[in-house]
Amino acid sequence: MKRYIPVALFALAAFVTPYSVNRVFLHTGIERKMGTVQKIFYFHVPLAWIMMALAVTCGIAAMIQLRRQSRLAEATSIAAGELVLITGLGVLITGPIWGHATWGRAWTWDARQVSTGLLWLIFAAFVLLRRYGAGGSDRLAAALAIFGAIDVPIIYYAVKIWKTTHPTTDVVGSLPPQMWNALWPCLIALVAMSIGLLLVRIRQEQGAMALDDAWIAFDERGAGKRGEVGDA
């Protein structure tokens, strides 16, 4: 039963994505100031929300991992951390593409851009630590994830204050409700996609952990046998 949840989510995404694209491009007006390029908004903004949610998920899972020594929580934090990297990359690439068309410059040191970039760096450090850290660094990585999740608002606030010394650019003003409504199908599609990938990755990580344990048990048993033979 559990196996089919990701499949169902992917199927949902596969249905909703064409619908959302249809709705965004054919049934929603073109924004007056920015023109067609504003269509990036419909996938860029939900992706940014998903990234934040995944960062917080990663932090909470890491907290549970530290408190309860839960394998599931550990796998969740790993999976969420990786997906933060993926979605963050999406946000960080589509943002400048949009900015390039709207403001004429890809990187404008907008507070959101900078804070997203910094957050992405923290989770890149998390993934690096998970991958290349020595034994015992899983707990350290968990601490890093907790720090990262708590840093989310602090970074945003810090960059906002830091920004007061820089010229500000008006990003999205107020959009008509029609455009907000077209956002929801895109959000559903992306959320279904991300949760599906998250679940797959969690299962995979759990499998990897179990496999590691099995290998170690096997090796230890083998070593024990050899030891007995040697003694005799």
Binding site: T36, V37, K39, I40, E82, T94
Partner: peptide, 25 residues
């Protein structure tokens, strides 16, 4: 035309990122 190319690039980037991650998985 420029808007369209920007939009296509942006959408392409998002879905190819997901696709690459899927293949990696």
């Amino acid at each position: 035309a420029s808007d369209y190319s920007h939009v296509v690039w942006a959408y392409g980037v998002i879905w190819s990122l997901f696709a690459i991650y899927g293949v990696t998985l």
